[in-house]
């Protein structure tokens, strides 16, 4: 994601007269906007368009907004701003349970909403790309996703672009099991990795980074679910 590329906002609100206004303000600020009016529609568009941020009314028909938020977060750590008519209830929801990035109480100023969108994007993009160093480590493996470099014990390792992406994603979620679908979703933005080839990519990646690819210490198979990157013990 570059600074200049148009960001996509998924706007989920069942009141079209509010949605129209927010959509136009966002478009005027060069955002792309996709809209859903209920929970199931929101999930579908979320998967199809991979938005950079979600504006979510928590009071939705079809599926509670809280459930929509939980499902989106289980797929991808996307910034989410809640729109709510119940500010009294939302502190708890935002802070403790769901981890939304911000919320705006109704009635709101659309300018204010756009300002929050920009501010949350600035904050979360900083979170993704620490200013001082882009290097992350697990065990003896160091990866720099901007420079596109991988080193093991200081020695440079050559990976294919797909192997690099898989390693990058796994290393961003150390200790967390990623399902095959989650991995495919994150690795295969261009649709170039398919379910049946994921295992082969993993095997090839292990051959490059594991001291003993036969008994992996970094990329652990979670049977029936997916894969997990761990700190080697």
């Amino acid at each position: 994601m570059t600074q200049t590329a148009s960001r996509t906002v998924l706007l989920v609100d069942d009141e079209p007269a509010v949605g129209d206004v927010l959509e136009q303000y966002l478009r005027n600020e060069a955002f792309s906007v996709v809209r859903a009016a209920d929970g199931p529609g929101a999930i579908e568009l979320f998967e199809r368009h991979r938005p950079d941020l979600v504006l979510l009314d928590i009071n939705l028909p079809g599926l509670p907004g809280t459930e929509v938020l939980r499902r989106m977060r289980s797929v991808r750590d996307v910034p989410i701003i809640l729109l709510t008519g119940r500010v009294d209830e939302v502190d708890r929801v935002v802070g403790l349970e769901l981890g939304a990035d911000d919320y705006v109480g109704k009635p709101f100023s659309p300018r204010e909403v756009v300002a929050r969108v920009k501010s949350v994007l600035r904050r979360t993009e900083r979170r993704e790309q620490p200013a001082s160093s882009n290097e992350r480590h697990v065990g003896a493996i160091a990866i720099d996703s901007l420079a596109h470099e991988v080193r093991i014990d200081g020695k440079s390792v050559t990976l294919t672009p797909t192997q690099f992406k898989i390693l990058d994603v796994l290393l961003s979620h150390v200790g967390q099991t990623l399902t095959r679908d989650q991995l495919l979703e994150r690795v295969s933005a261009d649709g170039d990795v398919f379910d049946r080839t994921l295992d082969r990519h993993i095997a090839n990646l292990r051959a490059r980074i594991e001291p003993d690819p036969g008994s992996p210490r970094y990329i652990i198979t979670v049977f029936g679910v997916g894969y997990k990157m761990v700190e080697p013990s």
């Binding site: 009141e15 007269a17 509010v18 206004v21 927010l22 009071n59 008519g85 109704k106 009635p107 709101f108």
Partner: peptide
């Protein structure tokens, strides 16, 4: 009431 006000204020 807040929902309806939101329609009016935003527009």
């Amino acid at each position: 009431i807040r929902n309806q006000l939101a329609v009016a204020v935003a527009n």
